[in-house]
Amino acid sequence: MEGFQLTTTVESVLGQSFSEVWIVGELGEDMVEALKRIVRNRMFGGVKRLKLIFYLSNPEDLNYLNLLRPVLLENVSMSIVVEERPVKSLLDDARLIKDEVNVIIGKMVSAELVKAIELSRDRLKVVEIHD
């Protein structure tokens, strides 16, 4: 990293503010429509950046991306970041929430979710899957 000359300054993407949606537990087919609805609402609501955070019991298993594909394809105008985190980090993350975050509850939800909602000072808002 020494002795270089910086000729191009570039703005960060990940350093920008993102609207967040948390998906806690395994993603199921019944949750896809709810996620699509959220993505559409955010997109038409003028949101520029959206982060989908998956709290998974096995973050090595990428099968959830097959279900997520139609959700991602709904979008044309927002930057979307998909992250995976272990369920055990949920409580720590809930303590740090600043703005309201939508949560979708997946299959095999950990009991830690209830605790997380308390810790978030009601900033975690559970989204109903079925209208």
């Binding site: 993407v13 991602l72 970041v81």
Partner: peptide, 9 residues
Amino acid sequence: RYVFVGPND
């Protein structure tokens, strides 16, 4: 895991 770079970025 995945990043879609939107028109604003």
